[in-house]
């Protein structure tokens, strides 16, 4: 009678994260700072995306020691990243007891053709997407949460904005279609028909949709909430800033009160330097993480 790993408990777990900030951390100390600041979850990593970018080479799942260290340090949920299509990394993270797996383009893909069949797992997955077609394909594979890809590790919000705007406008378009137009739209988007039908009927994605990939300031976080994000992932932004504790708290508050501009002004004061950031047009195509996966 007791059922684990159902769609409802996997998607429901993400529903509980809504309105919150999920922070990248690389050790127990950072995880505690994140929890103390009001993060709803932490993402345990070996290196934040900006450092992965700088280091080059192949980026893989974090050392299980780091995942365990972070898990033991906090009471909030712990997420971790597996390479796209890496069945064994995902199984290892599930065995370690992480609460959510990010099948992530921030790591070097293990499979350039197939993503994981996420329905096979008890643990839920979050996946990146640039548009509704990509989001629907991931949901079709069993993703329980979606995030915009943005361009990770750049501190530049422009790609996350592009992806969120694209998804929201495509959702509106599908919601306004008649059912006889839907199969053609499914073909055009490369989206599973059933997922589109569900979106048409409810007017929204069937799973929670967070923003990720370039959030570097409290104002960036609030911007993504205004564009319709259910919450925000902050990767390199927090622990690459001058004062991570203050910065983390400011991002959490700006996400809650994203329409209170006086408050965002106050909490943006004296935060010190945010991460330097990268202009997207200076990135070689091979260095654009968002191109990974399909």
């Amino acid at each position: 009678m007791k059922q684990t790993g159902t769609d409802r408990v996997k998607r429901g777990m993400a529903e509980m994260q809504k309105g919150g900030v999920i922070m990248d951390v690389v050790n127990a100390e950072q995880a505690k700072i994140a929890e103390e600041a009001g993060a709803v979850a932490v993402m345990a990593l070996e290196r934040v995306p900006a450092d992965i970018r700088a280091a080059g080479g192949v980026a893989r799942m974090a050392d299980p020691t780091i995942v365990e260290e972070v898990t033991n340090a906090v009471s909030i949920p712990v997420m971790a990243k597996a390479r796209i299509g890496h069945i064994v990394e995902a199984r290892v993270l599930e065995a370690l007891g992480v609460d959510y797996i990010d099948e992530s383009e921030v790591l070097t893909p293990a499979d350039e053709v197939y993503h994981l069949n996420k329905r096979d797992y008890t643990v839920p997955f979050v996946c990146g997407a640039r548009d509704l077609g990509e989001a629907s394909r991931r949901i079709g594979e069993g993703a329980s949460m979606i995030r915009t890809k943005g361009e990770p590790g750049t501190g530049n919000i422009v790609e996350a904005v592009r992806h969120m705007r694209m998804m929201q406008s495509q959702i509106k378009k599908v919601a306004g279609m008649s059912e006889d137009e839907l199969m053609t739209e499914a073909k055009n988007l490369g989206a599973p028909y059933d997922v589109l039908l569900e979106i048409k009927r409810s007017g929204k994605l069937p799973v929670v949709n967070f923003a990720a990939g370039g959030v570097a300031t409290p104002a960036d976080a609030a911007l993504m909430m205004q564009l319709g994000a259910d919450g925000v992932f902050v990767g390199s932004g927090i622990f690459k800033s001058d004062n991570p504790e203050k910065f983390a708290r400011a991002v959490v508050e700006a996400t809650t009160h994203y329409e209170d501009y006086q408050l965002i002004a106050d909490l943006s004061k004296g935060l010190g330097t945010a991460m330097k950031g990268i202009e997207i047009s200076t990135l070689e195509k091979a260095d654009r993480m968002q191109e990974r996966g399909w």
């Binding site: 007791k2 059922q3 408990v9 777990m13 959510y100």
Partner: peptide, 10 residues
């Protein structure tokens, strides 16, 4: 327990 132990039951 953790998320993998989350469940539904009557």
């Amino acid at each position: 327990g953790r998320q993998r132990e989350s469940f539904e039951a009557p």
